[in-house]
Amino acid sequence: MNTMKINLIVNGQSRSVEAPPGKTLLYLLRDDLDLLGTKDGCREGECGACTVLLDGEPVNACLVLAGQVDGREVVTIEGLSQNGHLHPLQRHFVEAGAVQCGFCTPGLIMSSAALLEQNPQPTEEQIRHALVGNLCRCTGYTKVFEAVQHAAEEVDRD
């Protein structure tokens, strides 16, 4: 089996992994780095459950190869909380009841985090647009949009 050494920054920490370059980032995170928050849904870019930030941009980890992230920076859902405190998005998802089975939640939150980073005061239309690539089979999205709106209001006040 061909492997290569992949050096990357994950959630602020330098990591070095020996892995086959054709493995997807999704499995690099889940199998080699024990980060199970990034979910394995469709494996073809349709559902967004595997959304992570690559150099700050939301991407589907199932459609990025491990070899392509050498020297780059990845943030997963595990990287959002700080000093044991949930990120406002995480808290508001819970408070608004935007989580049912929870499978889509990490992906939705990562896409939302990228949105708030670029646009701290999004309109509902902008929130919907940012989340087009994230499917949820349970909630019907209304509570999700509410949660993002509430988190934006809180982040903006700080």
Binding site: G45, V59, N60, V64, S111, A130, V132, N134
Partner: peptide, 9 residues
């Protein structure tokens, strides 16, 4: 084309 994740790649 797809969601923003796909548009970024």
């Amino acid at each position: 084309v797809g969601g923003l994740q796909t548009q970024n790649r």
